[in-house]
Amino acid sequence: MGTRKFREIVQINYERAIEVIQTGDLLFCSGTYLISEFIKKASQSDMSHVAFLFKWNGRVLVFESVEQAGVRIIPLLHYVSNYDNSGKKYKGSLYIARHEKLIDSAFDEALLSPMLGKGIDSLNQQYAQAEIMRILTRIQLGIGQRKNQNEFICSEFVDQCFQQIGIQFARGEGDFIYPEHIAADQRVFPLFELVV
């Protein structure tokens, strides 16, 4: 389980985190929701969700694909204070990581434009109930591939976006990719755990 590298890393609060985060950083979640626990168990991982971050106009935004909404953009602040408009923080742990290609201080953020473009082009792709069940079956059985290029689970969405800048993550059997595959990648380095 490659996500062990995320254990016992430095914890920082949201105010400090937004100073350190850069566009292209990865957000990993270890949720305690029912679907999160299912994903963690099925993938034998600590991680249940992955997304990527970008900075815009003094804000940190999350590009992600979630079961109830498909591909969306939400403020990272919602994860720490108003997740799913509940008035509460996300139930679980939040980790920020960076791919080694994005660590170099000389890296030009303009090179991330194709990744952001892919994310924007994928916005608001909705899942039908049948698609959610098909995805859950794929996770449980670890087989099959997505049939529609516009329907993503979180790790497929992140992988597709990162491919736009020449980064491809390893996959499991059946060409399937979990958040674990991205977190375990040797080129992905944990930065900190985000705490409230």
Rank of each mutant, 00 (worst) to 15 (best):
S48W: 02
F52W: 14
F52H: 02
L53K: 00
F54V: 01
K55Q: 13
K55D: 04
N57I: 12
N57W: 14
N57E: 15
R59I: 00
V60T: 12
V60H: 02
V62R: 00
V62D: 03
F63I: 00
E64A: 06
E64N: 12
S65F: 08
S65G: 11
Q68D: 15
Q68I: 13
A69V: 11
A69C: 13
G70C: 07
V71Q: 01
V71G: 03
V71H: 03
R72M: 09
P75C: 01
L76W: 02
L77A: 11
L77K: 06
H78G: 01
H78W: 07
H78C: 08
H78Y: 10
Y79S: 05
Y79H: 10
V80M: 04
V80A: 01
S81Q: 12
S81C: 12
N82W: 00
N82K: 00
N82M: 01
Y83I: 04
D84S: 11
D84A: 09
N85T: 07
N85R: 12
S86I: 03
S86E: 06
G87A: 03
K88E: 13
K89D: 08
Y90D: 00
K91P: 14
G92L: 05
S93A: 14
S93N: 15
S93G: 13
L94T: 05
L94E: 04
L94S: 05
L94W: 02
Y95F: 15
Y95N: 05
I96G: 03
R98K: 07
H99G: 07
E100K: 13
E100G: 05
E100C: 09
K101F: 14
K101P: 13
K101G: 07
K101D: 14
L102C: 10
L102T: 12
L102V: 08
I103H: 14
D104P: 04
D104A: 09
D104E: 13
S105F: 11
S105A: 11
F107Q: 03
A110V: 15
L111A: 12
L112P: 11
S113N: 14
S113Q: 15
S113E: 15
P114V: 07
P114L: 02
P114M: 06
P114T: 08
